[in-house]
Measured scan of single mutants.
Amino acid sequence: KLLSSIEQACDICRLKKLKCSKEKPKCAKCLKNNWECRYSPKTKRSPLTRAHLTEVESRLERLE
């Protein structure tokens, strides 16, 4: 599967780190437990900047 097509777990399953069936409108866990089942939009991760990478590398060197 391509990364862009990976389905996201519902908010509660993601928060509780449960295996989500990803069914809509309610996944199996939410249906069974009568929880409100919501699927928040995916958040875009910002790409690493060179400055951040350099900072992490220098912190790693100090720890070694």
Rank of each mutant, 00 (worst) to 15 (best):
Y39P: 02
E61S: 11
K22G: 02
C10M: 04
R45V: 00
L3V: 11
P47L: 00
R50Y: 05
K29S: 06
E36T: 13
L15I: 10
S4E: 14
K42C: 07
K26D: 12
I6C: 12
E64P: 06
E61V: 14
E23H: 14
E23Q: 14
L15N: 11
L63E: 03
S46H: 01
E57D: 06
C30F: 03
E7L: 11
C20M: 06
L48Y: 07
S5A: 09
L2G: 13
K26N: 15
L3S: 08
K44V: 15
I6E: 11
D11I: 03
S5E: 13
K19P: 06
H52K: 05
A51V: 15
K42V: 09
A51P: 00
R62F: 11
L31C: 12
R14K: 10
S46P: 11
K17I: 05
K44Y: 10
K32V: 11
K24F: 15
C27S: 08
S58K: 09
P41S: 08
P25W: 00
L31G: 14
S58F: 13
S21Y: 02
T54N: 09
K19E: 03
C10P: 00
Y39A: 04
L18A: 15
T54V: 08
Y39T: 08
K16Y: 00
P25D: 08
T54S: 12
W35N: 14
A28G: 09
K32M: 13
P47E: 06
I6M: 15
I12Y: 13
I12Q: 11
S46E: 01
A51W: 04
S21L: 02
K42D: 04
L53A: 02
T49E: 00
C20T: 04
S5I: 12
I6K: 08
N34Q: 14
C27F: 06
I12D: 12
K29R: 07
R59V: 02
C20V: 00
K16L: 02
K44T: 12
L31T: 10
L31I: 12
L63D: 02
E7M: 08
R14P: 05
D11W: 03
E64L: 09
E36I: 09
S58N: 12
E36L: 12
E64K: 10
P25N: 07
K22H: 09
C30G: 05
E55I: 09
E7Y: 04
E64Y: 15
K44Q: 15
P25I: 07
H52M: 03
C30M: 05
S21P: 08
L15Q: 07
E7D: 12
P47A: 08
E55W: 14
R59L: 05
R50G: 02
R38Y: 15
K24I: 14
K17M: 00
P47R: 10
K24L: 10
L3A: 13
R38I: 15
Q8A: 11
C27A: 04
P41L: 05
C13E: 05
C13L: 05
V56H: 06
S4I: 13
T49Q: 06
T54Q: 11
